[in-house]
Amino acid sequence: MNRAGTNRAGTNLVRRPRPRPPRPSLRSLTGSPVQILLLCCSFALAGYAGVRLLDGDRVGVLLWFVGAALLHDLVLLPLYAVADRAVVRGLGAVRRRAWVLYVRVPAAFSALLLLVWFPLISGRVEERYRSATALSSDGFLGRWLLITAALFGGSALLLALRVLRSATKRRSPDLH
């Protein structure tokens, strides 16, 4: 390198570096080494537990593990996002966009309870629940429906109060 850039007289030739296409640096290919180290530690621990998790019904566990993520991200989430958009669009079409929350919140709460307590509400564990605990399993569907009714009822009441108040305000603007 030194030889190539120096002539016989010992004077330095100023050589312009040829313009080269920018090569991606090693760092941009790997990313942060600290992050890589951290993730490798995490994988070591997850792997240690993971081989024990898979020691049994390997396919079943893998299916449940990956399936849970896929089912949530590609089915459950799009479903409720689409339902929510339908509510927003629907109420928007009838110029009642401000009502969205009064439908969305009780519907979301009711759906949440159904999602969590589905085995009991649907009655799919009815037999086992009754024979194991000596408790009745009839009430769950009814109670969920009652809670849902209460949520929508309360929401409707709040909305009615709001509509009523804004109507009074509009009728007597000079009082405020």
Partner: peptide, 21 residues
């Protein structure tokens, strides 16, 4: 985007799949 990013995405599968599981 990078090795670290690839590892992070695998880790996120363990995170999300693990949490839901």
């Amino acid at each position: 985007r990078s090795l670290a990013h690839a590892l992070e995405r695998i880790s996120l599968l363990l995170l999300v799949g693990g949490a839901l599981f």
